[in-house]
């Protein structure tokens, strides 16, 4: 478990208590208060709780629930009713990572990720509208659609944690993410230009990509992104933007002194926006625990 300052402990405890309260009968977690099981919320809760030192025995029911809902092709879907919604699969891989009883489930999910991905194709004449290279294959949110930044970054994190760091699909994912970097240095959901308009970066996707590319690219490749996040992180007190910005900076050895205060302020804003989703609280919990260059193990549970 990561050693934290007293201030960080207070903030972390606020996140974890709410996450614990989201546990549902039958294993796993809900996304919100009073909701039913949701695989992405379950995986995020496991990842955050494991990073905080929760024993594997306590997390067993949640991991088992994820294994129970795993589809025969190895994917983990947001619901069996929505067959194409495979985007929780890398989250499940990370939640199962390093746990022997779930090695087979993890392996099947990993194989699914290696065999799947977003739609890709050669350039067409009408591609003038968008600037990205459609031949570079990453991963999609939902089957049968284009590759986008966030599911690609999450799949790369999961595959790297599962021992496929140098796999050609991961290397292509790196190339795809670098192709989607916008002019100001960061990333958005995955467009750089549409017609004559440059797209701008978003804090949450930039931070996420900084985490995903941590061990795949040299620091100079990330310099512009780091500058962008440094510039904007202090403005944001909402969970995805702040959480991923802090994790992204931590991945590259930077930790703003005010981080815990910002996270506390972000949690306070639930009085305005209502209780945050479990996934967002888990992200903030991980941001609390992020120390210099220790971000990867927070997600995978594996110390290097």
């Amino acid at each position: 478990m990561v050693k934290l300052s007293a201030e960080a402990e207070v903030v972390l405890t606020r996140c974890l208590k709410t996450i614990e309260g989201r546990a549902v009968i039958g294993g796993g977690s809900s996304g919100g208060e009073g909701g039913g099981f949701r695989p992405d919320a379950t995986a995020w809760a496991v990842i955050a709780q494991r990073a905080s030192g929760t024993a594997a025995d306590s997390l067993y029911p949640a991991r088992e629930k994820l294994a129970k809902v795993q589809a025969s092709d190895g994917s983990v879907r947001i619901s069996p009713d929505f067959a194409g919604t495979i985007w929780p699969t890398p989250l499940a891989v990370l939640a199962w990572q390093g746990e022997a009883p779930f090695a087979e489930a993890g392996s099947r999910a990993t194989n699914y990720l290696l065999a799947s991905g977003g739609l890709h194709r050669d350039r067409r004449r009408d591609d003038a509208a968008v600037a990205v290279n459609p031949r570079l294959r990453g991963w999609s949110w939902v089957t049968g659609t284009f590759s986008w930044v966030e599911p690609t970054a999450m799949a790369m994190m999961a595959l790297s944690a599962a021992g496929h760091f140098g796999h050609p699909r991961v290397r292509e994912g790196v190339a795809m993410l670098l192709d989607r970097q916008v002019r100001e240095g960061g990333w958005n959901f995955g467009e750089t230009r549409v017609y004559q308009s440059e797209r701008t970066a978003l804090p949450e996707t930039t931070g996420l990509v900084m985490v995903a590319l941590r061990d795949h690219v040299p620091r100079e490749t990330m310099d512009r992104a780091i500058v962008y996040v440094r510039r904007i992180v202090g403005r944001h007190r909402t969970p995805l933007a702040l959480g991923w910005c802090l994790l992204g900076l931590a991945a590259w050895g930077e930790e703003p002194e005010q981080a815990y205060g910002w996270i506390a302020e972000c949690l306070d804003r639930q009085s305005s926006y209502g209780p945050y989703d479990t996934t967002h609280l888990a992200l903030l919990a991980l941001a609390c625990m992020a120390h210099n260059s220790e971000v990867g193990p927070l997600f995978s549970g594996v110390r290097q």
Binding site: V24, I25, G28, G36, F37, F82
Partner: peptide, 13 residues
């Protein structure tokens, strides 16, 4: 703890 089971994503009802 809240009720899990069928979950929040049940369809058709």
């Amino acid at each position: 703890m809240s009720e899990g089971g069928g979950g929040v994503l049940d369809s058709g009802r």
